[in-house]
Design a protein around this nucleic acid. Sequence first.
DNA 1: TTACTACTTTATAATGATTCTAAAAAGGTG
DNA 2: CACCTTTTTAGAATCATTATAAAGTAGTAA
Lengths: 132, 132
Amino acid sequence: MKYIEKLRKSGLRPTKQRLQICEVLFDTERTFHFTINDLVKKINEKLNHKISLATVYNTVHAFEKKGYLKQIPINSNQTYFDTNISDHHHFYDLKEEKLIDLENSDVGPINIFKKIDGKKIKSVEVLVKLED
Amino acid sequence: MKYIEKLRKSGLRPTKQRLQICEVLFDTERTFHFTINDLVKKINEKLNHKISLATVYNTVHAFEKKGYLKQIPINSNQTYFDTNISDHHHFYDLKEEKLIDLENSDVGPINIFKKIDGKKIKSVEVLVKLED
DNA sequence: TTACTACTTTATAATGATTCTAAAAAGGTG
DNA sequence: CACCTTTTTAGAATCATTATAAAGTAGTAA
Ligand SMILES: [Mn+2]
Ligand SMILES: [Mn+2]
Ligand SMILES: [Zn+2]
Ligand SMILES: [Zn+2]
């Protein structure tokens, strides 16, 4: 399996559950945005059995910490994650409640003129809210 | 009181609780960011009695709907609000877990080249995460 | 293979922010 | 005041997320 090495390199044991979650998350044509609930549904569809909810949470957080997933800041009662870990921005369709990627070429360069002493910029994220 | 008219114009009855919350939120030198919990603490400090939690939630949401408060999208278990309703962006200090305003002059113009059919841009918000 | 240890999974309970409920209180109007 | 609507409130309910702790598994070295 191609994910075994990836997990080992990260210091994560390649367990059955983690490998199966890798398949659901990363064996896709396109990247996508999801909540934990979305992911549990995908797992139940793709596999014919369940992975415990605690494991799904644990795994997603482990993957996020290792940089294989990104969390998207958005006002929702649920946390949104992204399998697209490149630097990029988002549309948020308020009616559909769906995120849409804005690739870097879709957004002009962003200049931040203000500086805070002793702090470095870690990331710059743009959220563009869409209405009808 | 200066807030009575403001509330009346919005179709909100100027109740004692709403006026007191107005004082805590808007009788300040500077705008600020807060969670519901922060606000409850401020109310308990400024006034010598409590306003029920449900009323604080109701009022904040009513004010947000009327445009007197903004919600700031951020990854937190609590919802952050802003008394600065101008178009502006934010630093988020990851260690302090504090928002810092970026005025429009602190950020260069932002160009979004992508369009989605039938959708209009409602807002563009930049979140700049800071680390040490 | 076996034994050992650390890590992982799991069911379940706990937490905590937010929302709901429905009855009491207060505002607006005449 | 009398009437009606809106608002407040305490408390319960909801629900995403995290914690717990016992059972299972992976890695490793004898
Ligand atoms: Mn969802
Ligand atoms: Mn706070
Ligand atoms: Zn994305
Ligand atoms: Zn602000």
